[in-house]
Design a protein around this nucleic acid. Structure first.
Lengths: 148, 148
DNA sequence: CTGTATGCAAAGGTTTTGCATCGGG
DNA sequence: CCCGATGCAAAACCTTTGCATACAG
């Protein structure tokens, strides 16, 4: 997801309709670093757009996934999170504050997945998910953002 | 999970009770390469032990996780899978047959996670999940085990 | 206009919880 | 004996689905 404009252009090119609800979801995701869940998106947008259904959020997310504008992050145990940054990077779920933070992809790591063939299997995609404590919680030991 | 005996010994040492239901779950998991879900375990054991509750399966799995005898694998989209092999290795979800296969940890990959500090965050654990096509489905293109 | 997206509600699946009862240590 | 585990059922939660209506192109 580079920008609102490029995403909308892509939508049109792929033949999808531009409804206000879809645009609101796209706006919410664009540049959002918080890896929101479908529920987060629904709750946040429901205030502004009372006429918004849960299924519309899911449909829009699925559509954005299909055209490669967002990626689903399978790191939490009981729900999916969504990331507008589809470049190669990884995620850490902080066990203190519950946030999901981005981890840049190191050259060494990328090197391991250079080939699409690993142990005789064909690898089409991969995710690296970590758990631990994020830098904010490590420094500010008075944990200003503790949620758990 | 090394063996049935060692697991039972560990359970006793940790002060957990040895009930027939717990032992049946442990037996089912021990050496099982199929990464079953809680539902798989329940369905399989319900035949032999009609007196088995879903909650007991979940309780036992949580207990086994806590004492480090199994690990939860967060690779499927809508449920958790469980693996009695807690050594360092990764998983590939085959998009053809739906199976989860083990990928041995390479030295190069392990090297990347040598330090518990990455990008200023403290990493306590990590999972590498891949999607693609497993070697069985690649070879036997007549896909004898296709499920999707 | 036409076809598709929306909203609503209900279903489906997984996991959790509450409570009376049972049984292992 | 006693405390914790079990079984049962229901609830909670996330996600998907079906259908009539509304609306973008």
């Amino acid at each position: 997801m580079r920008s609102l404009d490029s995403t909308i252009t892509k939508l049109k090119a792929e033949g999808f309709k531009l409804t206000p609800q879809r645009i609101s979801v796209i706006k919410y995701m664009e540049g959002n670093p918080d890896h929101p869940s479908a529920g987060d998106i629904y709750k946040a947008l429901k205030k502004k757009y009372p006429g918004l259904a849960f299924s519309t959020v899911y449909n829009t997310l699925r559509m954005l996934q299909k055209i490669g504008e967002i990626q689903a992050v399978n790191i939490a145990e009981d729900h999916m999170n969504y990331d507008p940054d589809t470049s190669s990077h990884f995620h850490l779920l902080c066990e203190e504050c519950g946030k999901i933070v981005d981890i840049p992809s190191s050259g060494d790591l990328a090197e391991c997945f250079r080939s699409s063939e690993i142990s005789g299997h064909e690898v089409k995609s991969y995710q690296i998910n970590m758990r631990g404590t994020c830098s904010s919680c490590l420094c500010g030991s008075s944990d200003p953002q503790r949620r758990l």
